[in-house]
Design a protein around this nucleic acid. Sequence first.
DNA 1: ATCCCGAGGG
DNA 2: CCCTCTGGAT
Length: 216
Amino acid sequence: MKRESIEPFFATLQAANPQPVTELEYTSVFELLAAVLLSAQATDVGVNKATRRLFPVAGTPQAMLALGLERLEGYIRTIGLYRTKARNLMETCRLLVERHGGRVPRTREELEALPGVGRKTANVVLNVAFGEPTMAVDTHIFRVSNRTGLAPGKNPLEVELELIRRVPPAYAVNAHHWLILHGRYVCVARTPRCWECAVARWCDYQPKTPPSGAGR
DNA sequence: ATCCCGAGGG
DNA sequence: CCCTCTGGAT
C-alpha cells in the first residue's frame, strides 16, 4: 500500500463507523480484562455468551476468587482453551487483590505480569480502558495489515511496530477497532469480500471477483 | 515449535 | 471433513 493511501484508507473506515466500540461485553475495567483474557482463539460472540452468565456472579476479582476454579470452569466450558483460561484468570484475580488492591493496573509491565495476559491483551486493555494509542495485533489485524500492505510483518510484533510507524496520529486510538471490524466482517480470513470492500482501491490484495450471485 | 480446545462456518 | 476465532506459556 502506498503511503499516500493510508490517510484515505482510514478516513473511509472512519466514515463507515465514526464511533467504533469493542464487541466484547463488559461493565468495568476488570470485566474487560477478564473478557479479553477469555477471548484468546475464541470468538467474541462465544465469550459474551459465557460472560453474560459469569459476570453477574463474578464481576470483581474478589467475587471470582469466591466462586472458585471448578465453578468458573463450568461457566466458560463452552470457550476453547477453557482449563488454561480458568486457571490463569483465577491466578490473575489473586494477584489483582494481593498486589493491586483489587484494581486493574495501568502499565504494560504490570499487566503483562498477570498470567494469561500477554502483549496483545495488555494492548487491548491500555487502548479500550485507558485510551492509549496502542496497536493490539490479533489474528484479524495481523491478516488485514499484511494482506492490504498497510503494515507488513512476519510476526505480530513486527506488524505492531509498523502500524505505530504508519498510522496517522489522528487515527491511532481507534485504528485497532477499525481494523478489527474490517477484518471480522469484510476482510475475512477464507474468502475476503473484496467486491463489497470500501477500501479495496488502496489495497495490495488482488483477487476481487465476487462469487456468482453475490453482491448486487 | 508445540500445546491448549470448544463452537461455528464453509 | 477442515478452517477460524481480538493468544499465552513452555
